[in-house]
Simulated assay, not measured.
Amino acid sequence: MDQGRRPNAVVANDNSKIYMDLKSIIREHTLPFLPAKSLFRFKGVCRDWKLQISTPFFAHNQSNSFHNVSGFFCQSCSNPPSFISLDPNSYGVPDPSLQFLPEPVDIRSSSNGLLCCQGHTGDNAYYICNPATKQWKKLPKPNADHGSNPAIVLIFEPSLLNFVAEYKLICAFSSADFDNALEFEIYSSAENCWRISGEIYFGATKIKPNSGVHVNGIIYWLSKTGGIVVFDLTMERSQRLYGHKNGFYSHNQGCLGVMNEKLASVISSYNQTLTVSVLSNSYTNTMAMNSKVKAWDTKLNVNVSESSEYQGPVLYACGEVIVIQSERGLYSYDMKTREFRRLTTEADHDIRVVGYVNSLVEI
Rank of each mutant, 00 (worst) to 15 (best):
I107F: 02
F33V: 06
G247F: 00
S308F: 14
N79R: 14
I84W: 10
D2L: 12
N216S: 02
I152F: 04
T345C: 10
C117P: 05
N124F: 09
L222G: 00
S70C: 00
C46P: 09
K336W: 09
L139T: 01
N89L: 13
G203L: 01
E183N: 07
P32Q: 05
L222D: 00
S159T: 03
E362R: 12
E103N: 05
Y283L: 15
A204I: 04
M335T: 11
M235T: 13
V354F: 15
S63D: 05
N252C: 12
P7H: 10
S63V: 02
L31G: 02
E339A: 15
G247V: 04
S85M: 01
Y167I: 07
L300W: 01
T121E: 11
R6T: 08
L34W: 02
N68M: 09
V229C: 13
T286M: 11
S197W: 04
L222F: 01
Q325F: 07
H120P: 03
A288M: 11
K141S: 13
S269W: 06
A264L: 07
Y242G: 09
C318N: 15
N252Q: 13
S326W: 02
G203W: 00
L182V: 11
Y310A: 14
G92R: 00
D232L: 05
P94Q: 00
I200C: 05
K262S: 15
S326D: 07
F57I: 13
K50A: 13
G319I: 04
S90T: 07
F202K: 06
N281H: 14
A181S: 05
G119N: 07
L98V: 13
S250I: 13
P102L: 05
G355R: 03
F163C: 05
C46I: 08
Y19L: 15
Q99F: 11
G217W: 05
C46D: 09
S197N: 08
E191V: 07
E362A: 10
N130P: 08
S109F: 06
P96F: 04
S110W: 03
P80T: 08
K43G: 12
V69L: 13
S90W: 02
N358W: 00
C193L: 11
E157W: 09
Q75E: 08
A36S: 12
Y270C: 14
V321E: 13
S280F: 06
Q62R: 05
D297S: 10
F178A: 11
C255F: 08
R47P: 09
D87H: 10
R47H: 11
A144S: 11
C77H: 12
K206D: 12
T345F: 14
N8D: 11
S223A: 06
I53M: 03
G122S: 04
L98Y: 07
K37S: 09
V266Q: 06
S359Y: 01
V276E: 03
V361M: 01
N290G: 02
L315W: 00
G319D: 10
P104I: 10
L222A: 02
A172R: 05
K292V: 06
T121L: 11
L160K: 10
N358T: 04
R47W: 03
V45C: 08
S174F: 10
V321Y: 12
E306I: 04
V276R: 02
S174E: 15
W296T: 04
G243R: 07
Q118K: 10
S269Y: 13
M20L: 15
S250W: 10
M335G: 09
G226S: 00
